[in-house]
Write a protein that binds this DNA or RNA. Structure first.
Lengths: 193, 193
DNA sequence: ACCTGAACACCGTTCAAGT
DNA sequence: ACCTGAACACCGTTCAAGT
């Protein structure tokens, strides 16, 4: 479980290169150089480039899950407001680190074991929030997973569309990802039971 | 505007290779071979590999827009039901051609002119449907763009999460993309005015 | 157990040249 | 206007060898 210094240095270098120029800019030669090792030292820690990128994605999801948990415990406010804060944070994360966001939800997510576990942990925090909101009668009854996924899918889709420039509208009908989340909250509030 | 035979053959070959193995499998050498030309003939039609992939994405969006329009005109049913059909079709498209779906919403969408126009046209059909549903009092009042983007973002996010295996749940709380769209429709129906 | 340097196959792109 | 073949630089991966 403990990470060697070289291993974590490789992951950090890969994440930086990803931010700077996308997956194509993450060359094992430059990753090695930034970590102070040769260009094929990464093969002693990862199966290959894809496995290294999966480790970057897994680290990102672990941080995301930790952040959601912090949010879920610190403010004693209404659970629905906490859910809203978590979704706004999700959107902010996508906007701040678009390359990491895109990578994390790449097609191979399910193939890597660590990545799958990290993703499940990240979702668990959201489901807890939805269940708490139901208990406080702020969300309608039903499976909390179903409500949590409704919010997560909307936040994810809005953030992804915005990154590709598919959400921008001219003035009047403009819908930011945050607007859409708040629209859903307004809808769900009027159906509390 | 008219496409040369070679150009469209290159786009088709690239789309096939994309489906078979993702963007990395789209090598200009293999694209050229399948189109019956040399490995650098593509440079006479496209600025480079990225521009060729953008053409694949643009063609995909044009087809998507055409499909949405066909759907919007053929069934004389309720507009909200047509909107639901369009969203289910969107999800089906993502599931059938995951690589084209991922490519279409890549980070560079806004950089290519043709792609931007095709995307705008595809969204326009949806907004028309939302406006029609409002007129029929099946959707609450407000900007139709806002409602259209609410549905589009949910469908997009649910489809993208499912492709990465981030939506699967164990039995009871399982939420398919189609389920989530129907959940949103149920919410919005109870807020018709 | 971890790292290095040389080597290989492959790919995107450029260029001079052909029709 | 469109295409070809050779060539170049770069990258992922493998391997024999070092400590």
């Amino acid at each position: 479980m403990t990470e060697s210094d070289t291993r974590s240095a490789l992951i950090s270098a890969a994440a930086d290169l990803l931010d700077e120029g996308g997956p194509a800019a993450v060359t094992l030669r430059e990753v090695g150089a930034r970590a102070g090792v040769s260009h094929n030292a990464p093969y002693k820690h990862f199966a290959g480039k894809e496995d290294l990128l999966a480790a970057v994605a897994a680290r990102e999801l672990e941080r995301q899950a930790r952040g959601a948990h912090v949010h879920a415990k610190s403010p004693p406010g209404a659970p629905l407001a906490q859910l809203r804060t978590a979704m706004h944070g999700y959107i902010r994360w996508a906007r701040t680190y678009p390359q990491r966001f895109k990578l994390t939800f790449g097609a191979w997510s399910t193939e890597n074991e660590d990545l799958g576990e990290a993703a499940a942990a990240a979702r668990a925090g959201l489901i807890d929030l939805a269940a708490a909101a139901q208990k406080a009668r702020e969300l309608p009854p039903g499976e909390p997973e179903r409500l949590a996924y409704l919010f997560l899918a909307l936040a994810h889709g809005a953030a992804d569309l915005e990154l590709g420039g598919h959400l921008a509208a001219d003035g009047k009908g403009r819908a930011s990802p945050e607007d859409l989340i708040d629209d859903l909250i307004a809808l769900v509030r009027q159906n509390r039971r």
